[in-house]
C-alpha cells in the first residue's frame, strides 16, 4: 500500500498537518496559574496578560458548532456561515457570468480581427491594471445600490483574463483547421462554432478559471467595504466583535469554497481539452 504515490503523499500531508496544528495549539496555551486567581483575573479570562490567537481546538469546536447549523438566521448580525457564503457565491457567479457573456464575444472579435485588436488594445491595457476596488466609489455613485455595486466590481475584475485568453485562443487557432473550414465552404458563423470555438475552448476555459479565482479573491474585499451580508462582511464583523475564532474559521471556509470553485472550472477545462 505504501508503494502508491498518492497514499504516501497523503501520509506526508497528514503528518505536516498534525505537526502544524500541534505547534499552533501548544504555542497558544494560557499559562497555568501559579497562585489562586483573584476574582478580577477570572473575569478577565484567566491569568493571561495578553490576548492570544485561539488554538485549533477552539476553531474546530466552533466549526463543528457552525457547520451543524449553517443556515440559521437570527437577525442582520447573526447569520449562519452557509448563508454568508451563499451570498458571496451568488455575487461572484452573477458578476462572473455577466463578464463571460461580454468577454467571450468581444474576445472572439478581437481574436478574429487584427483591426479590432489594435483598436481595442489601448483601452484594455489601461483598464486592466486598475484594482477592481478602485471602481467601488464610482459604482456606488452611479448604481446607487451596494449589492449591484459589488456585483459590478466582480464583473470588472473577472472580465480581463477571459477577454484576453479568448482573444489569444481565437487568434492562435491553427491555420490548417481554418483552412479545413474554408475548403468545406462553412459560413462564418458555422466556422466560429464548429471549428474556432472548440479549438480555442481550452484557452478560453483557462481564462475563465483564472477569472473565477480572482473574483473570489475580490469578493471578500468588496464585501468588507459594502457590508451587510457575505463572507467578507462576516470576517470584518467578527473582527469588530474581537471573535478571532470565527475569523480563523471563516478564513478556512473562504479557502475551501475557493478551492471548490477552482475544481469545478478545472473539471470543465478537462471536458473541452483535446490532444493534438
Amino acid at each position: 500500500m505504501l508503494q502508491s504515490l498518492n497514499v504516501r503523499a497523503t501520509l506526508v500531508s497528514l503528518v505536516m498537518l498534525v505537526v502544524l496544528l500541534g505547534i499552533w495549539e501548544l504555542a497558544n496555551q494560557a499559562p497555568a496559574a501559579d497562585k489562586p486567581l483573584t476574582e478580577y483575573e477570572m473575569l478577565m479570562g484567566g491569568a493571561d496578560q495578553e490576548a492570544r490567537v485561539p488554538p485549533p481546538s477552539a476553531v474546530i469546536d466552533l466549526a463543528v458548532d457552525e457547520l451543524s447549523n449553517p443556515f440559521y438566521d437570527a437577525g442582520p448580525n447573526d447569520k449562519g456561515i452557509g448563508i454568508q457564503l451563499a451570498y458571496s457565491v451568488y455575487r461572484v457567479l452573477a458578476g462572473y457570468l455577466l463578464a463571460a457573456l461580454i468577454a467571450i464575444p468581444i474576445g472572439f472579435l478581437i481574436g478574429m480581427s487584427p483591426l479590432m485588436y489594435k483598436a481595442l488594445n489601448p483601452f484594455i491595457q489601461v483598464l486592466r491594471p486598475i484594482s477592481p476596488l478602485a471602481w467601488m466609489p464610482l459604482a456606488l455613485f452611479i448604481i446607487k445600490d451596494s449589492e449591484a455595486s459589488s456585483i459590478f466590481v466582480i464583473f470588472i475584475c473577472s472580465i480581463w483574463p477571459m477577454l484576453i485568453n479568448t482573444a489569444f485562443g481565437v487568434a492562435g487557432v491553427r491555420r490548417d483547421w481554418v483552412n479545413v473550414a474554408r475548403t468545406h465552404e462553412l459560413s462564418a458563423l458555422k466556422t466560429a462554432f464548429a471549428v474556432i470555438l472548440p479549438a480555442a475552448a481550452p484557452t478560453i476555459l483557462t481564462g475563465m478559471r483564472i477569472s473565477i479565482g480572482i473574483a473570489w479573491l475580490v469578493i471578500v474585499a468588496a464585501e468588507m467595504l459594502v457590508g451587510g451580508t457575505g463572507i467578507g462582511y462576516y470576517v470584518w464583523n467578527e473582527w469588530n466583535n474581537l471573535d478571532l475564532t470565527s475569523v480563523i474559521f471563516s478564513i478556512l471556509m473562504i479557502g475551501l469554497v475557493g478551492m471548490l470553485l477552482d475544481l469545478a472550472l478545472s473539471a470543465a477545462t478537462r471536458l473541452v481539452q483535446y490532444q493534438e
Partner: peptide, 16 residues
C-alpha cells in the same frame, strides 16, 4: 474554396 475540390493536407488537418 469550394466543396468541388477536396484537399488532403500534408499534416492531415484532422480536427483533434
Amino acid at each position: 474554396p469550394s466543396l468541388d475540390r477536396g484537399v488532403v493536407f500534408q499534416n492531415y488537418s484532422l480536427l483533434p
